[in-house]
């Protein structure tokens, strides 16, 4: 078993144009920076990207949008990106907006081997159009299907060479769910360690879900909204 690859370019080398990708992160927090850069270098196009947000103009998935590599975004909130808005209004980019909890749970369902789940969010709204409804205990729910994604690309804080992952603070967000949901899961980590160095009691994603792992480098970890209070 060898899951360790040298770098992001090697990790994504078999991602071709037209692929469906899950990309972890919330806003710019916990995004797989190294793999996004590698995808921009590789120049693959017509990608369908499942990701809660679409980055900002010059960082995150925004870098892929600038190069017109994305055919479709599946997200819950895309409000921080002017180029995104331009491509959307001009019809170059297709967008499917999904409630955030539904997005997370459709990832979870895939990772747990469940084809679909019944969820409450969006009942009575345009999100419900065309979806199967079912009533449980007098309440209506929407049938939401698990995502089917060729690749999941996630960022973890620490990982070992067996693929076990640990996340830090709110950089966890969608990363574990997507890691569990990809047909092929690629994890970039800030610190790659040997088996035995992670306490198994504190592993967030077991290595069984992870196919490729590498130690990332040069993390910018950009802050979207820097809010502070003055020292007393």
């Amino acid at each position: 078993m060898n899951k360790v690859v040298a770098n992001a370019d090697e990790a994504i080398k078999d991602i071709e144009s037209g692929a469906t990708l899950m990309l972890g992160g919330f806003g710019l927090c916990g995004i797989p920076e190294n793999c996004i850069s590698a995808l921009v270098r590789k120049g693959v196009k017509d990608l369908t990207c499942i990701s809660n947000n679409a980055g900002v103009d010059d960082f995150g998935i925004g870098l892929m949008l600038q190069q017109k590599q994305v055919k479709k975004m599946v997200s819950s909130y895309v409000g921080e990106n002017a180029e995104f808005e331009r491509q959307l209004l001009s019809g170059e980019l297709e967008v499917e907006l999904i409630p955030q909890g539904t997005l997370a749970t459709r990832c979870m369902a895939a990772g747990y081997g469940m084809p679909a789940v019944y969820l409450l969010a969006g009942v009575g709204t345009e999100i419900a159009e065309g979806k199967e409804l079912r009533t449980f205990n007098g309440k209506e729910y929407l049938l939401e299907e698990a995502f089917d994604s060729d690749f999941a690309i996630v960022k973890a804080w620490k990982g070992d060479t067996m693929g076990n992952l640990i996340f830090k603070d709110t950089a966890r967000n969608f990363n574990p769910l997507m890691a569990m949901a990809g047909k092929i899961t690629i994890a970039e980590v800030e610190e790659l360690v040997q088996p035995g160095e992670l306490d198994p009691n504190f592993v967030h994603v077991p290595g069984v879900y992870v196919h490729r792992i590498f130690q990332g480098s040069d993390y910018e970890k950009r802050i979207e909204q820097r809010t502070v209070r003055a020292k007393a």
């Binding site: 919330f26 927090c29 997005l103 990832c107 969608f174 769910l177 909204q225 820097r226």
Partner: peptide, 30 residues
């Protein structure tokens, strides 16, 4: 956070840098 203590891995749903109090818990989006 106090100025200088902000951490890119610690944000709220508005993407603002924040802190966690004693007794906090972190979990995934699902």
């Amino acid at each position: 956070p106090f100025e200088g203590d902000e951490d890119a891995d610690m944000i709220n749903a508005g993407k603002q840098t924040i802190t966690k109090l004693p007794g906090s818990a972190i979990f995934d989006s699902a």
